[in-house]
Amino acid sequence: MRLVIGLFGLLVLTACGGVRDDLTVSPEPIGQFRLGHNIAVTPDPERGPFSRKATAEEWNAAMRQAVADRFNETRFPGDAYYHIGVAIEGYVLAAPGIPLVYSPKSVLIITVNFFEDATQTKLNEEPIQLTVFEPCCSIPFLGSGLSKSREEQLEGLAFNAARAIERTMRENAEWFGGTPEVLPEDETIVEGNVLVDDPDAILPDQSPPATN
Rank of each mutant, 00 (worst) to 15 (best):
M1G: 09
L3A: 15
L3Q: 15
V4F: 11
F8E: 00
G9W: 00
L10Q: 14
L11W: 13
L13R: 00
A15Y: 10
C16G: 10
C16V: 05
T24W: 06
P27S: 00
F33G: 03
F33E: 11
G36I: 12
N38G: 08
N38A: 11
P43H: 11
P45W: 02
E46R: 14
R47D: 07
F50G: 06
F50S: 08
S51H: 08
S51A: 01
R52H: 08
K53P: 04
A54F: 08
E57K: 11
E57M: 03
R64V: 11
Q65A: 08
V67K: 04
E73A: 13
P77S: 01
A80N: 09
Y82R: 12
Y82T: 10
I84E: 06
G85R: 13
V86C: 10
I88Q: 02
I88K: 10
E89Y: 03
G90I: 05
A95G: 12
P96W: 01
P96G: 00
L100F: 15
L100P: 06
Y102D: 04
P104N: 08
S106R: 07
T111A: 14
N113F: 12
L123I: 03
N124Q: 12
E125I: 13
E125T: 13
E126H: 13
I128S: 14
Q129W: 10
T131Y: 11
C136S: 07
I139P: 00
P140L: 09
G143H: 01
S144C: 14
G145L: 06
G145I: 04
S147K: 01
E151L: 09
E155S: 13
L157N: 05
N160E: 05
I165L: 10
N172F: 04
N172I: 04
W175P: 03
G177L: 02
G178L: 08
E181S: 12
V182L: 09
P184S: 11
D186K: 10
E191T: 11
N193H: 06
L195P: 05
L195S: 02
V196D: 11
D198T: 09
D198Y: 06
I202D: 02
P209T: 01
